[in-house]
């Protein structure tokens, strides 16, 4: 990825502000997914876009200070989460990947629905973020190395 070398302040401020909005939206997509348009895939891709913005603004080293993830590891965390949530079905003598939900009364929030679909979708979210970022960053790193050589 080309790291911005210009000192165009307007561009930076605009992109950073946008990326915060996008990030917030992505979380909304993730959590609202069960009842409104959205979900793990959409949330994950939105997050990937937001992170890509940040990498566009800063150079790789600065960006790494803000974003301290090893993205390949994120993929495996996501997979374990999704597959693990599916395994709950075993303990309840149901099929694999059976999802459960119930409504709980929680003070302050009122009646809230809690589902096993949420951790499942969260796993998908992690995988998508991880995969998209790995693909983008790997190519970017490769070009950077080549330019330095």
């Amino acid at each position: 990825m080309r790291y911005s070398r210009s000192h165009d302040v307007m561009q930076r401020v605009l992109l950073i502000t946008t990326s915060y909005f996008v990030l917030a939206y992505s979380l909304y997509f993730l959590f609202a997914g069960h009842n409104n348009p959205g979900g793990g895939f959409i949330g994950g891709l939105t997050t990937a876009c937001a992170l890509a913005f940040i990498y566009l603004v800063f150079d790789r080293d600065t960006a790494n200070e803000y974003i301290r993830f090893t993205f390949p590891a994120l993929i495996s965390i996501g997979l374990v989460l999704s597959l693990g949530t599916g395994a709950i079905g075993f303990f309840a003598n149901d099929n694999y990947l059976t999802q459960y939900f119930d409504y709980f009364e929680i003070p302050f929030f009122g009646e809230v629905e809690l589902t096993t679909a949420l951790p499942f979708d969260l796993g998908i979210y992690f995988v998508v973020v991880g995969a998209a970022m790995v693909i983008m960053l790997t190519i970017a790193d490769d070009e950077k190395e080549e330019n330095e050589n």
Binding site: G33, H34, N36, G39, G78, E113, T115
Partner: peptide
């Protein structure tokens, strides 16, 4: 059965969970 109002997402997550998990696996 799924406890969700977005039928598309419920289909993906609750009814056709295997598809979705394997899709994530493909991405991985």
């Amino acid at each position: 059965l799924g406890g969700g109002y977005n039928i598309v997402n419920v289909t993906l997550v609750d009814f056709r969970g295997f598809d979705t998990v394997l899709e994530a696996l493909v991405l991985g």
